[in-house]
Design a protein around this nucleic acid. Structure first.
Length: 850
RNA sequence: GCCCGCGUGGUGGAAUGGUAGACACAGGGGACUUAAAAUCCCCAGGCCGGAAGGCCGUGCCGGUUCGAGUCCGGCCGCGGGUACCA
């Protein structure tokens, strides 16, 4: 009897699938389609175990759907533009394209042995000119439709390297290479008008029935619809050309508790006042000397500056409030100005205490007004609160009633307006970088900004750019910028901004439906294949990528590239957990950490070291990422045990949606199990024809069909595998006749085939299965085998299990009650008395309350 | 800071509000073998007990319920996102 040898078996079946063209997807209107897609990888150079986990899940779905008879589209590509290629270019002197395409070749070579059903004939990388040229065509269409515009926006500016930095490149407020404190700088940039769709993007979330609730909640909160009041505080003395300050508040009901007006350091008034106020100019400059990220802004220590200006309260002209500039007020949200209510907002209270601003006592209370200490009372929106000192005549009301009443009051009296505000901002897509899709416009002295003609697309990146200094190589390329104006034919300069790489990944799913077309999509293909039936990817994309894709599907519909029913691109979404791993670092020469691969680190119980003994700093469990080098390569497992073991192991290891800490142990055990299944299959061929217990085996088989099918349907892959272990144990021990055992083994091979396709093909052919198991129809469970005649009911006394009762499945309640009362443990607990209550849940449990 | 998750034996984890710890890994014991490998069998949450059995137990505190890992409220810890990492 031969041993299970993946090195022989796996290439054989991969060749068989290729020869049969099993996984090439063709549009066929007579068949029902199924489109399964995993989020495509960034070509960092190596596949890591997180990718393996992601694609194996998708492959299980794809193979399961193929077995169910669907025409399955399962493509794969590369999200190939981005920063790491430029960093590599600077460090290694290699063109980003060379580096990227080499990585793609390496990763394809790693993916190929895993036996996935990916249709590589449809593959592309987003840095292919054929892809980004179509993206440029889309951009021009969107420009024509008024979905693109230019405005000023701030970026992180490295004053030493004279370059724009990504948030990731800002570490503790300093540039990652230069170490210089970053500044905020304003540039004119390109924007997509995603906020025009805020309302639709929000409302349509309700229709995403097969998306995880957590993702829908995050998207709702991100879009952030809120109703509030917009009104102006009139300055007591006009200043710097301003008569008043417009604010937006979601809590107008706290108006009577206002104690100061705060404006953002970037507010036009704050900027205008800088001219005559050197101290304020310094304060504002300090505020701007930090990263642009939301996290940095919100976590920074709250500081303020008193402008000396005052405003009048809208309800009492004699009530004057000071105007402060404060760093925690965001110019991007509302009007960039707020009024503070320290009694009912903790941040306002902290700020007021810090600067000694007088605090208006609480006027919402469960009782009378009480002085405010160090804790603000936030009036709940949904529960009634008693009001004190309120102007609108309300006594007891919920927060929401109070808000609505106040808005109505302001509108009636003409000093304010109820408005709906979204947190969602327009999408700035300009990047001052080389390795991205060039924005296809030119700047003409005569005509201004003009879109490139579509016949001139793609606007290609130059092959001869240099990367010997920071910044955007397109800016100092000797000739690339020079072009002619598409409108007047005169000399003009190309736009050197490239697009955010999120643009590339916002429509690739649509491109897969016609990947070689001369237009972004082909309507017939898009209409047939869209939507993606099952999308699978990391939870870290819950907001940005998924929201941008939803926006793009709408924009593409408006531009005539997608049908109306594809404006929600992903019918079902599954968010897998991330594979996390410790990080390992040693201090570098410049004080920044140098990261080390887990494979180069020897881990002890109380620390870790490099192989030469250098101690290593052990960091927390975080998602595997190239930049922190905490990645584990699946190749080792594949070389040692084969693809099926790797696939089986990443699925059995943990529930798919949960983060998983990678440990190497367990892969061997997975291999042992697969080898055992193979051995049992081989033994069955020599088994005696007659046996005993055939009925029991069939019962176990049908239960396995039922359980594994349910497991796959619900993404409970680890649970499905546990059922397969149990079925394997039963089958290995079964003394049933050869034919029954062979049937059971063939079914097991089918149930395992989505996870271990090569082994399953081998067993299938060994035991006389017809054709390829990959296309054999999925087995069906016979309900007659699933029903049990008797059932064991646990008996609880006061909720604690004390005994059990074996009864016929359909025994009625009264009969069960009678039997329960006869039970020894129950009698002991009752001590001659009667139970207070007897709860019988038929087929489930009995609880006796004494 | 804000939004969203997660927390169960030594480990990964299972459990439509109904017997907590399925199925595995590591571990212990045994069989086979000259031996090893491979394979097979048995044990195993903690505490007390020879056993029968009892008590405790799903991050912490409280609540709802006949019954809570599961639902609700409040904490603690960890992770993801935070608009230029992808």
């Amino acid at each position: 009897m031969s041993r299970y040898s993946p090195a022989d078996v796996e290439p054989k079946w991969q060749a068989a699938w290729a020869e049969a063209g099993t996984f090439a997807a063709e549009r066929d209107e007579s068949r029902q389609k199924y489109y399964v897609l995993e989020m495509f990888p960034y070509p960092s150079g190596r596949i890591h175990i997180g990718h393996t986990r992601n694609y194996t899940m998708g492959d299980v779905v794809a193979r399961y759907k193929i077995a169910q008879g669907f025409n399955v589209l399962h493509p794969m590509g590369f999200d190939a533009f981005g920063l790491p290629a430029e960093n590599a270019a600077m460090e290694q002197g290699v063109h980003p394209g060379t580096w990227t395409y080499q990585n793609i070749a390496d990763m394809k070579a790693q993916l190929q042995p895993l036996g996935y059903t990916h249709d590589w004939s449809r593959s592309f990388a987003t840095c292919d000119p054929e892809y980004y040229g179509q993206q440029q065509a889309l951009f021009i269409d969107m420009l024509d439709q008024g979905l693109v515009y230019r405005k000023a926006a701030v970026v992180n500016w490295d004053p030493v390297d004279l370059t724009v930095l990504a948030n990731e490149q800002v570490i503790d407020g300093k540039g990652w290479r230069s170490g210089a404190p970053v500044e905020r700088k304003e540039l004119t940039q390109w924007f997509f008008a995603i906020s025009d769709f805020a309302s639709d993007l929000l409302d349509a979330i309700d229709g995403l029935d097969s998306w995880p609730d957590k993702v829908k909640t995050m998207q709702r909160n991100w879009i952030g619809k809120s109703r509030g009041l917009k009104f102006t505080w009139e300055l007591t003395e006009p200043a710097a050309g301003f008569d008043g300050i417009e604010v937006f508040t979601t809590r107008p009901d706290t108006l009577m508790g206002a104690n100061f007006i705060g404006v953002s350091p970037d507010h036009p008034l704050a900027r205008a006042l800088e001219a005559g106020n050197a101290e304020l100019a310094t304060f504002n400059a300090d505020c701007r000397r930090m990263g642009t990220s939301q996290e940095d802004l919100e976590k920074a220590e709250k500081v303020g500056f008193d402008t000396g200006l005052t405003v009048r309260h809208p309800l009492d002209p004699d009530w004057h409030l000071p105007v402060w500039v404060a760093n925690f007020i965001l110019m991007d949200y509302g009007t960039g100005a707020i009024f503070a209510c320290p009694a009912h907002d903790q941040r306002d209270l902290d700020f007021s205490r810090k600067y000694g601003l007088p605090v208006v006592d609480t006027f919402f209370a469960l009782d009378d007004a009480t002085p405010v200490g160090d804790t603000a009372f936030v009036p709940p929106k949904s529960e009634p609160v008693r009001w004190v000192n309120h102007f609108a005549g309300l006594d007891v009301a919920t927060g929401q009633e109070a808000i609505d009443t106040t808005i109505a009051f302001a509108e009636k009296n003409g000093w304010g307006e109820g408005v709906t505000q979204f947190r969602l901002r327009d999408w700035g897509i300009s990047r001052q970088r080389f390795w991205g899709c060039p924005i296809p416009v030119v700047h003409c002295d005569t005509c201004g900004i003009v879109a490139e003609k579509k016949e001139n697309l793609p606007v290609r990146l130059p092959d001869d750019a240099t990367f010997d200094r920071p910044g955007n190589p397109l800016d100092w390329h000797p000739t690339w910028r020079n072009t002619t104006c598409p409108k007047c034919g005169g000399p003009a300069l190309r736009e050197t901004d490239t697009m955010d790489t999120f643009v590339d990944s916002s429509w690739y799913f649509a491109r897969f439906t016609a990947p070689r077309a001369e237009t972004p999509t082909v309507m017939e293909d898009a209409a047939y294949w869209m939507n993606v039936d099952q999308y699978i990817g990391g939870i870290e994309h819950a907001i940005l990528h998924l929201l941008y894709s939803r926006f793009f599907a709408r924009a593409m519909h408006i531009c005539g590239h997608l049908p109306a029913d594809a404006t929600e691109p992903f019918d079902a979404l599954f968010t897998q957990g991330m594979v996390v791993h410790e990080t390992y670092s040693t201090p570098g020469a410049d004080g920044r950490p140098v990261w080390h691969l887990p494979g180069n680190v020897v881990r002890g119980d109380d620390g870790a070291a490099l192989s030469d003994g250098t101690p290593v700093e052990v960091g927390p469990l975080i998602k595997m990422s190239k930049s922190k080098k905490n990645v584990v390569d699946p190749d080792d497992i594949i070389w040692t045990y084969g693809a099926d073991t790797a696939r089986w192991f990443v699925l059995s290891d943990s529930p798919p949606e949960r983060d998983v800490e990678w440990t190497a142990s367990g892969a061997e055990a997975a291999f042992k199990h697969l080898a055992r299944v193979y051995r049992v299959a081989a033994e069955i061929a020599d088994a005696p024809e007659q046996g005993s217990g055939d009925e029991d085996l069939l019962r176990a088989m049908h239960k396995a069909i039922h359980d594994v099918t349910m497991g796959i349907e619900s993404f409970g892959f680890n649970a499905a595998i546990a059922k397969l272990y149990a079925f394997a144990n039963t089958l290995a021990k079964s003394k049933a006749g050869r034919e029954t055992r062979a049937e059971a083994m063939r079914v097991m091979a089918q149930l395992m085939a989505p996870m271990t396709p090569h082994l399953s093909e081998e067993i299938w052919s060994m035991l006389g299965g017809k054709g390829l198991i990959a296309t054999a129809p999925w087995p069906k469970s016979d309900p007659a085998y699933l029903v049990e005649d008797t059932v064991t009911l646990p008996i609880q006394v006061n909720g604690k299990r004390r005994s059990e009762l074996k009864v016929a499945k359909d025994l009625d309640k009264d009969a069960i009650e009678a039997l329960v009362l006869e039970d020894q443990a129950v009698q002991k607990a009752l001590a001659g008395g009667a139970p207070k209550k007897l709860i019988v849940v038929p087929g489930r449990i009995v609880n006796v309350v004494v």
